[in-house]
Write a protein that binds this DNA or RNA. Structure first.
Lengths: 200, 200
DNA sequence: GCCTACTTGGCAGCGACTGCCAAGTAGGCG
DNA sequence: CGCCTACTTGGCAGTCGCTGCCAAGTAGGC
């Protein structure tokens, strides 16, 4: 098996197997969720149809929610990195917008994104988890936003948090409206409209 | 037992017993949550210490989350009613603010509110549920807000939703900041500061 | 060819939650 | 007063998400 010199997919066989299994599970899960709904699909069924044991499935993805996961951590990382890279004279809102645009580019395809967000809209428990994940992103972004807002003083933290929470609220509203319109139009146009409605 | 003419507590014995049991459970739950944390407290323990069977507890409160519940439905009702009662020349933000003030008045005591919100802040799963509940309130308020914002047209829905989501985001931020400061100061002052930071 | 390290699957168990069934108790009736 | 009905309660078994543990299999480096 050589020291791995070729420009093959990835390092070891294990890695490749893992990756393949991971994709298989993810695809099976999304398909079943779309077909029968999130709550109506048990993890046992996904495991069986994906050809792995339930135990192994839970080793790959810690929770059922994660099975929907379009790599949320990458989303958070790209978002934070992009916001951080904006030059100092860009105002907070523009910086956050840039980050969202960058993160938005991570979706595999419009169709898949639509499927996922539709599920998100229609399943209360998923919606809750999604919002909670958003909170963690906000925590990561907080220092960046605070710095960019300059003004210090007693309420600086609250003000920065409020701006962040509002941006996320607008993003959520935009995405949900986009789903309501069956993916017609652009999410960022809706986002801009939402922000304008709030700050206008 | 007469036809119940006296200005006693409530109608039948059953009702009174139910109410007493309900309070007992709620108090026990809050106490245990504060003492050992939400995730570390099992429903079985609450049931045992409250002197009811687990089955009965679940008949009173459908989920473990509800055990923290400072009557969320009343919160939603008061909020919606108050917003609806505002005269037509009051703008959206002021109307929402008035609703929040009214709903805020429902807390039994500052101390209990602080306990509950502290739990909310420190427990991810609770936080998620709380946010999700907020979404349902937003759905109830949507028609009221849309009407008050006048402007019709294609994006009216999204804009109204955005305003609502922002107001809730500011409320959440204000409350969490209030908890961070151990209950010093007024939540509504923080709320105003948050809104100003966003709309300024 | 062998030893090591990693991966896998099965099993038992926990906690939240539900349906079902049997027993107890309040309430209205004669 | 006693009785019948309606509501409430508790227990039991079972589902589902999730975890720890242990035994077996397989890739990787020597």
């Amino acid at each position: 098996m050589r020291r791995e010199g070729a420009a093959d997919s990835a390092g070891t066989l294990w890695d490749r197997t893992r990756q393949a299994a991971s994709r298989e599970i993810l695809e099976t899960a999304l398909r079943l969720f779309v077909e029968q709904g999130y709550d109506e699909t048990s993890v046992a069924q996904i495991a069986k149809e994906a050809g792995v044991s339930q135990r192994t499935l839970f080793r790959y993805f810690g929770t059922k929610e994660d099975l929907l996961g379009g790599n949320q951590e990458r989303f958070g990382r790209v978002l934070a990195d992009t916001v951080g890279e904006q030059s100092a004279d860009v105002d907070v809102w523009a910086a956050l917008r840039a980050g969202i645009v960058a993160a938005q580019g991570l979706h595999d395809s419009r169709e898949q994104a639509l499927d996922r967000f539709r599920l998100l809209r229609d399943t209360a428990s998923l919606r809750a988890g999604w919002l909670e994940k958003g909170l963690r992103f906000q925590d990561e972004l907080l220092p960046l936003v605070k710095a960019r807002m300059g003004a210090a003083g007693r309420g600086a933290d609250a003000r920065a948090r409020a701006v962040l929470a509002t941006a996320f609220a607008c993003l959520d509203t935009a995405v949900m409206t986009w789903v309501d319109r069956d993916g017609k139009g652009e999410v960022m146009d809706l986002y801009d409209e939402c922000v304008a409605a709030v700050r206008g």
